[in-house]
Design a protein around this nucleic acid. Structure first.
Length: 572
RNA sequence: CGGGGCGUAGCGUAGCUUGGUAGCGCGUCUGAAUGGGGUUCAGAAGGUCGUGAGUUCAAAUCUCACCGCCCCGACCA
């Protein structure tokens, strides 16, 4: 491609609405333009990189035995009602009406559609395992789109769905995708690593997310460098000891704490109750039921764990008025010892199990209770791990300290089980002639997000540093002086033709611009290999070959082609 | 949905407090010089100042409403 024939609108200045480096570079390098919030146009250069990522995904999915198909983005709401997600996923569902006023949904994902297909086409264990995938535009009514392609209303996703006759088969399918994902991200030049994850609204029994470390990521990951344990903070556990039991057995005693409504205030004089001897009592509305959640005063509730453990779909903290109505006191004086209505379930964090000599609210504004023994003085419906781990806590597996870092989620693999196959009737006959629901898995990659993650991870002050495999062009030729027929331009044209003939993707910067402009733009758009042609080096019969972000070398004009070919092949 | 910030030429912005001819840089076009890291000079085009009401002799500027964009939050009593 000749630059003068292309559209590569680079920007010297950063557009005002970009915050993170990858978003700025997407705009500055002329890869995308914003149509409106959360919706972007892929310009030719951006599309080329996007297609390369898609191609890598296709090759690895095919290699793993998955079958590509293409499903409609527009879907009937009936199948969403059947799966139950018309309700549970309603916040992200875009809905439209046709001319007869019938409602449709724009697919945020395709479990319902693929399961409907399987229900009709997969009727025997002999047809399994099967894994179907597509690369397609998804629509999600995000609460807040942000950071360019990172979280958009419309984005491109690779989604795959496996169907197996047995649980073991499903695990094997899962493992194949796990391995394929590892290869895909490595080939994209991304340092991505798998972490244990919550399954969320998709459902299913277990899952891994593939994470790209980045300060700007929206996720937090807890990990152990010693043993390799890694989990999303929403799921992570640690090996902390339970709260120490003490000798005393005194009866519960009420004491006045006027104006004290925080853990911190109670931990100070004159009360001086350390946060780790306090029970924090949280009132939640979980699927319209009022419940209590108890965690230690120095811990934080992990709402995702709470939802996962209790199976609740919609969860919110109760309002102060609701707390007053349920327990007779306002937040700050709440407890589970007295006045808990019989129909209110009490969930407690494991770390409190067996604790005594604790202090908690008295359910009477301005009063707390001390000498509280969990087992003796209050009724816990169920114990769960509900707390959020913190950096420095011992790893549950090897006791070395955990670290926490932020990361971008680029892929997610789920073992789904039979949740969708049961609801949408995707059943098959096994060897004995018995009808069973298929065991499913689903596997997503955010393709557009992956593109941005590559940039977020691979850049310097001058611009993008594309990994060769996903660069929009592999080579840029930068002639300093573009007079047709000049020695420089003649050589530039020849290298351009020869490299193109060898299948190399080359951008020829034939603009009549000053060297500085061309170098800056070449760095900004991040083409991995630059061939510089100028009078100085050409006078010695040499051309310059420079890796983006690396050293410059000189090559004899006659050897330039071979040298560049070698670089391209080695880096691919 | 709550909070904060912002909307002035393709991009980045000044002007708004204290109402009175809309300014600068980049980019674009023309010409000239220059020619190895966003060069320089001369000239030019390009604006419903987000939209609508209101106040006023007069509104980019003040008031109200709406729209849009960006950031934080929508767990931790």
């Amino acid at each position: 491609m000749r630059w003068t024939n292309a559209l590569i609108p680079t920007l010297k200045e950063t557009p005002a609405d970009a915050e993170i480096i990858s978003h700025k570079l997407l705009l500055r390098a002329g890869l995308i333009r914003k149509l409106t919030g959360g919706l972007y146009i892929f310009l030719p250069l951006g599309l080329r990189s996007l297609r390369k990522i898609e191609q890598i995904i296709r090759e690895e999915m095919d290699r793993a035995g998955a079958l590509e198909l293409l499903m409609p983005a527009l879907q009937p709401p009936e199948i969403w009602q059947q799966s139950g997600r018309y309700e549970t996923a309603r916040d992200v569902l875009f809905k439209v009406r046709d001319r007869s006023k019938k409602e449709w949904v724009l697919g945020p994902t395709h479990e319902e559609v693929i399961t409907t297909l399987a229900a009709g086409e997969i009727n025997s264990y002999r047809q399994m395992p099967k894994n179907f995938y597509q690369i397609q535009t998804k629509f999600r009514d995000e609460i807040r789109p942000r950071f360019g392609l990172m979280r958009a209303k419309e984005f491109i996703m690779k989604d795959a769905y496996s169907f197996d006759a047995t649980d073991d088969g499903a695990m094997a399918s899962y493992q194949k995708m796990y391995d394929a994902y590892t290869r895909i991200f490595a080939r994209c030049g991304l340092k991505a690593f798998p972490v244990e994850a919550d399954t969320g609204v998709i459902g299913g029994s277990h899952s891994h997310e593939f994470m790209v470390p980045a300060e700007t990521g929206e996720n937090e990951v807890a990990f152990c460098e010693a043993c390799g344990y890694a989990a999303n903070i929403e799921k992570a556990t640690s090996g902390l000891p339970k709260t120490a039991a003490r000798e005393i057995g005194a009866a519960v005693e009420k004491f006045a704490t006027p104006g004290v409504v925080t853990i911190e205030a109670l931990s100070k004089a004159p009360y001086s109750v350390p946060a780790n001897r306090q029970i924090k009592t949280l009132v939640y509305i979980a699927d319209s039921k009022t419940v209590l959640v108890l965690i230690r005063g120095d811990d934080q509730l992990n709402e995702t764990k709470f939802m996962a453990k209790t199976g609740a779909v919609e969860v919110r903290p109760a309002t102060p008025e609701e707390c007053l109505g349920t327990l007779g006191a306002k937040p700050g004086s709440l407890g589970a010892v007295a006045n808990v209505p019989a129909d209110v379930e009490v969930f407690a964090d494991e770390r409190l199990r067996g604790a005594n000599d604790m202090t908690t609210g008295a359910n009477e504004d301005g009063f707390h209770l001390k000498n509280v023994s969990i087992e003796r003085d209050l009724k816990v419906t169920q114990w769960f791990d509900l707390r959020t781990v913190r950096a420095g806590e011992p790893c549950a597996k090897c006791a070395k300290p955990l670290k926490i870092r932020r990361a971008i989620e680029v892929g997610h693999v789920f073992k789904l089980g039979t949740k969708y196959s049961e609801k949408l009737n995707a059943v098959f006959l096994d060897e004995t002639g018995k009808s069973n629901p298929s065991v499913m898995g689903c596997y997503g990659i955010g393709v557009t997000r992956t593109l941005q993650a590559v940039i977020e991870q691979s850049n310097d002050k001058d611009g993008i540093i594309w990994p060769l495999a996903v660069a929009p062009y592999q080579v840029i030729i930068t002639p300093l002086g573009v007079v047709a027929g000049s020695p420089i331009m003649t050589l530039a044209e020849k290298l351009y033709a020869d490299l193109t003939a060898q299948g190399v993707e080359v951008l020829l910067d034939d603009r009549d611009d000053r060297p500085g402009v061309k170098f800056k733009d070449a760095d900004l758009i991040g083409i991995p290999i630059r061939i510089g042609l100028g009078e100085k080096s050409l006078a010695n019969g040499e051309v310059e070959i420079k890796r983006r972000g690396g050293e410059m070398t000189l090559a004899k004009t006659g050897e330039a082609l071979a040298n560049v070919l070698e670089l391209v092949r080695a880096g691919g």
